[in-house]
Design a protein around this nucleic acid. Structure first.
Lengths: 167, 167
DNA sequence: TTTTCTGCAAACCATTTGCAGTTAG
DNA sequence: CTAACTGCAAATGGTTTGCAGAAAA
């Protein structure tokens, strides 16, 4: 029984929205975490983490491994799984399941957001709507329910796939 | 790649909130569907469907099988899986995944609703909040996204587990 | 009697783990 | 040197499927 949608994201100040911001920073932070736990730091691990951070968002183990193997062909699935698990445990990554077979991972220290998943092209767009959060709280009060995390996904057709705005 | 959270619920008039309402009715409807497809109707199938409908909501294959086996010990997993798949295909059931290992099934012809899942006791409470739906539409418009279905789950501690209102 | 069921075992697939050898500290 | 890392293969666990026999139509 896995904890559902753990949303204990780090609350770092995250001003710029650029996807590849702070890769070095995060790598350093992770390395510190490793030291704390008496874990080692290796070339392969670095490579996996770096590729993960460069990918930016919503990548599957399989895709990540493909990227990693472009730079080091011998790397195995288990190493990627193990490294991502490490990232999740240390708060640097979050695992998400959008109904597909495999789960997708994204860096953890972004602002809270929900997801819109295109059922045609698979694109995942993030969004934020404080009104929804407020209403969730209202519902929770009505039910006497203490919300610790939530999960909201819209499924449908994105603008590109709908043929709108074809620039 | 499985279709995510298919919300094509039948729009039958569903006035009474009683959980075991219309079991015979649904069984009859399903039987009609079976005939249409040239499928057969069998004692085991009936039993699985009946137990599913009696259970009311959010039951796992494993639990359903347990219930079924109380009345017919020889039934196998595959039959339950196959029967539930049939129910989903014919629009009588919906499969849901709340982050746990196995998926849960619920009857499909209920009103649209979202879920609040208690992380302590596992209880799943349904709720409805039209304001949230409206805001989802607003967000979708903003993104140029055509929503076909959505999924909203609150995770947290239910009133009972929080120790409130211990009657 | 023909086609669809059913139970069982094997197959699948994403993920995890045991093991023996490699490598970091 | 010692403990952690890595790749591989085997193990897991939920779900699916092939097959031979049982049961509907």
């Amino acid at each position: 029984v896995r904890s559902p949608s753990d949303s204990s994201a780090h609350k770092r100040r995250a001003p710029a929205p650029a996807p590849d911001r702070g890769v070095a920073d995060r790598l350093a932070r992770l390395r510190a975490t490793l030291k704390t736990r008496g874990l080692k730091h290796s070339a392969v691990r670095d490579l996996v983490v770096e590729e993960f951070l460069l990918a930016g968002t919503h990548i599957s183990i399989e895709d990540l491994l493909a990227r990693v193997r472009r730079r080091a062909s011998g790397v195995g699935y288990s190493t990627v799984y193990r490294t991502l698990k490490l990232l999740v445990e240390s708060g640097e990554a979050v695992a998400r399941d959008f109904g597909g077979a495999q789960s997708l991972f994204e860096p953890a220290d972004t602002r809270h957001h929900d997801h819109a998943v295109c059922v045609r092209c698979g694109a995942i767009r993030e969004f934020e709507e404080s009104g929804i959060e407020a209403l969730q709280e209202k519902v929770a009060r009505r039910l006497g329910f203490q919300v610790t995390s939530h999960r909201l996904e819209l499924y449908g057709v994105c603008a590109e796939c709908a043929g709108k705005r074809r620039d």
